[in-house]
Design a protein around this nucleic acid. Sequence first.
DNA 1: GTCTATATTGTGATAGAC
DNA 2: GTCTATCACAATATAGAC
Lengths: 177, 177
Amino acid sequence: MDTKAQILAIARELFARQGYRGTSIADIARELGVTPAALYYHYISKADVLDAILAEPLAAYADLAERARSGRLTAAELLGAFIDFTVETRQLMPVVSSDPAVRARLDERLPHSPAEMADAIISALAASSTEPKRLIVARAAYAAAKDGTAAALDFGSGTLSPEHRKLVLATALRALG
Amino acid sequence: MDTKAQILAIARELFARQGYRGTSIADIARELGVTPAALYYHYISKADVLDAILAEPLAAYADLAERARSGRLTAAELLGAFIDFTVETRQLMPVVSSDPAVRARLDERLPHSPAEMADAIISALAASSTEPKRLIVARAAYAAAKDGTAAALDFGSGTLSPEHRKLVLATALRALG
DNA sequence: GTCTATATTGTGATAGAC
DNA sequence: GTCTATCACAATATAGAC
């Protein structure tokens, strides 16, 4: 593994465990076995490391939101895709996207903020209804899928069995009504 | 309002908006119209301010977990109480409890960590079953109640109407199966 | 109760040698 | 590519005057 990728792997883990603000360049450098200055050869700033880590998950999320907007997916397909996305990004998204500093950065750098993308998915789950009641239920179902997946990953040592995937999907669909 | 309470009100809002780490003593002091040093007359440290803010919500949460452990509540009663708790602590709990620095402090200061209390409630929702499938569904229902309530509060300008409360409760119960 | 002044530490980041 | 040395700054916190 080249150094840039190593840095990302370490930063990913530390950001997930301690948060973005709670992790210093020195923390990452220590884990890698170099001095902080060495990191600046590979990435021009701490925020640049964050960007590199989030680029792929955010692109996948944007893609999911785009498919949701198209209206060509059933609720089951949409929730299933969201469950799979949650599995792939489990360590990172919850911790990092809850850091206000990170959110502010993403809001000014992305065409659509993560919150807007979530809205697109939730709106599609509500069958594009603008009625508050449908949107409340859709957001509850979205949360059920996310946290149900997280719970299943906890019990499955980090992997989601097909059986548990079915269970979580059925639970979220039940919530959706 | 006395100064101590004013400080808490300001800190509560800033912590909710910018996170604990993202808010400095200087930020709070500026909002109050004094110098940072003045705050140290009222609270011995920034963590002390945090403790004062969280004491009441955490006690309420611990009480809810205790009632869950007693096994004397139905799933509907438990979820209803959790929805009401979520309404009362809406600004604070999500942001603050997702800051790793805050979590670490709470873990070492409380008899039961917030995560343990959540487990107690989720276990009760699973009817004290230790089967992973039941616990996964229970956690999904718990999340549906939480985020459904948050969505309803968004649409209701910060208040939860009886109608929306019924809706969220029904949605979470449906997820629970 | 609040101020000024300051100690102290941590952090992101740069310059320049090797 | 990595180092040493260092800067600039922000943050928590304290001392002591008013």
